[in-house]
Write a protein that binds this DNA or RNA. Structure first.
Lengths: 141, 141
DNA sequence: ATCAATCCTGACCGATTCTGTACAGTAACG
DNA sequence: CGTTACTGTACAGAATCGGTCAGGATTGAT
């Protein structure tokens, strides 16, 4: 019941980029260094975030990454979903083949559904912008 | 980012037991059959829930398990914590040894802390009793 | 006493997933 | 062109997961 390193690293990178002055691109290795993330691993993560439209990139010399999504629309769920696939807190309980309608199983399914919904809503409600209140234009260095 | 089978199965078993008439003990194999859980695996899970005080057991012939905790005090967090260990949605970001106080890392930590807190509160707020409203004394068979 | 039902404990194992590396591109700038 | 940097994929070691198994301990019934 935890977020993977991939997810953690990706979030850290997104937060880093969100705290940079707009217009600036940051090197993958720079982010890795600043956030304490293995370089090659992070490169993979950034590429995925880019392919999902959360980050943008500039190739070639003087290239780098920048935040493309809007921080007040970009939620934790978006980032995690981009990196870890669909957010499914639970898998459905194994269906048996008994034709009888099963009260207990229906109850369990209801409960799991409720958990899934509430958990997803929580992640969706936490926006990246939420954590960058007081430092507009104050870069991380 | 999901709950393990152990957690799912454990929850299903707890819900099953919560829906049984009070005073009754249920066989491990019976629960397994009704919930579609591998018997030996469930046995392990039930034992752990017992050792944490969530379930009680009767040994020997005509033994079995029963719900010991109060359904309106027993939360999803309690059950998951018993089965999967402490609920830590995130691990702390790797600390580097740079003496400089690091704005980005502090921000990331804050965010992760907030996530951890909110997630835990959510799990803690969902009680087992919450899902058993309308079927007092209506056992699952 | 003995036997069978049932829980108790912990070791074990195969498969999957996670974390990270390596490497062979491709694009851009100077 | 040559260097910088992103892109994409394949691969490998480690950890975790999901589940089995064997051997004991306890109790009720005969």
């Amino acid at each position: 019941m935890r977020i993977s390193r991939r997810g953690e690293y990706g979030l850290a990178a997104v937060i880093y980029l969100a705290s940079q002055p707009s217009g600036k691109v940051s090197l993958s290795d720079e982010i890795a260094g600043r956030c304490g993330i293995p370089k090659t691993f992070l490169a993979q993560i950034l590429a995925r975030l880019r392919s999902k439209g959360i980050l943008g990139s500039v190739r070639g010399k003087r290239g780098g990454y920048y935040l493309k999504a809007e921080p007040n629309r970009l939620s934790l769920a978006d980032v995690l979903e981009a990196l870890e696939g669909p957010i499914t807190l639970i898998r459905s309980i194994r269906d048996d083949h008994s034709a009888e309608p099963d009260f207990v199983k229906a109850t369990v399914k209801d409960f799991f559904g409720k958990l899934q919904t509430r958990g997803y809503e929580l992640l969706k409600s936490m926006k990246i912008a939420e954590i960058l209140p007081a430092q507009q234009g104050k870069p991380a260095e």
